[in-house]
Design a protein around this nucleic acid. Structure first.
Length: 312
DNA sequence: CGTCTATCCTGTGGGC
DNA sequence: TGCCCACAGGATAGAC
């Protein structure tokens, strides 16, 4: 679940290792990684190029290469990038050999591992094409100047979808995933099932601040490691130990002590405090009411609401 | 257009 | 002990 803080952590650790150096060889073991291109097509496009910069946009890692080529790389659910791993790691999908460069630093091999195989990469030629790629998919960067309370206000007007579902929509604001949506809504004391259009103006300001605080806390902790996500050297992030509510069903709310509740909002597991994040009008007090109605499709299971995750 | 669902994928763990 | 299946979820296509 690399979200903005996890991708930023990877970017900041990887950039000094690759910038200014040359891609000597690309071995794509899993053809899904570069679909619809063939492995040869992508490998040929990358081989011999110098890495000019490593950037991040939303949850995308963007390799800026010479010749006006960019590699738009997304880790999706479970990918990680390891530097010179030994022994060969499980779920290895791609090997990238980076040359010694001018300073004759030693060559290194990056291993892209990805248990669930959702990760992708695609080459984009030219600045204009890169801009339009992101234009179509992503809203403003949370830490950029155009992510304002006013923006949040504007894009939520008239929307009936739960605010959490809107936060997960990358076109509204880039980089937020399931973890940071829960954490930001808790910090802002807003119920995740509240219809976006019913946020008050002041709440948009509060929520913006809460999003920035949650993301910054994630970056400071070098991201969260829940399953496979690792740093370049295989180390884990520590933000999972600082979650306020995410994945903490049954534990006491850090603010009021009330039990944290787990429900489903926008089709995703959602954690919040029923006391600190009061339900919107029309939604019954029980947190379970936030469960989307499609659960009715499987009546048996719907009643047997998800068991509280006892922490070990 | 807005909203919701299914799909991709695989390891884990609960239930029986 | 072992089988079955729900679950985790980012992005996107397609249904309504």
């Amino acid at each position: 679940m690399p979200e903005l803080p996890e991708v930023e952590t990877i970017r900041s650790q990887l950039a000094p290792l690759v910038c200014g150096r040359t891609i000597e060889r690309v071995e794509i073991l899993d053809p899904r990684w570069c679909m619809p291109l063939s492995r040869d097509e992508l490998a040929d496009a990358l081989t011999g190029r110098r890495v000019e910069a490593l950037q991040r946009r939303g949850k995308y890692l963007v390799w800026r290469l010479d010749g006006d080529l960019s590699l738009v790389h997304h880790l999706r659910m479970s990918a990680a990038i390891l530097c010179d791993p030994r022994p060969e790691p499980q779920h290895l999908r791609v090997r990238i050999v980076i040359g010694g460069g001018r300073g004759r630093r030693r060559r290194l091999t990056l291993a892209i591992v990805d248990q669930r195989r959702f990760g992708t990469a695609q080459p984009v030629f030219g600045e204009a094409a890169l801009e339009s790629f992101f234009e179509r998919r992503l809203g403003p960067e949370p830490f950029g100047t155009d992510f304002t309370a006013e923006h949040l206000w504007r894009v939520t007007r008239g929307r009936k979808a739960p605010i959490k579902a809107l936060l997960l929509d990358q076109r509204l604001v880039a980089g937020i995933g399931n973890i940071y949506a829960d954490e930001a809504l808790f910090r802002a004391r807003i119920h995740p099932a509240r219809p976006g259009g019913r946020l008050r103006r002041a709440q948009c300001g509060t929520l913006r601040e809460a999003i920035l605080d949650a993301l910054q806390a994630g970056i400071d902790a070098k991201g969260a490691t829940i399953d496979d996500l690792r740093h370049l050297d295989g180390a884990r992030g520590s933000f999972q130990d600082r979650f306020l509510v995410h994945r903490r069903a049954g534990e006491p709310c850090p603010t009021c002590g009330e039990e944290i509740v787990r429900t489903v909002v926008g089709g995703r597991a959602t954690y919040f405090c029923g006391q600190c994040q009061p339900p919107p009008r029309g939604v019954p007090v029980s947190g379970a009411a936030a469960v989307s109605l499609r659960r009715l499709r499987a009546p048996d299971r719907a009643r047997r609401s998800p068991p509280p995750r006892a922490s070990p």
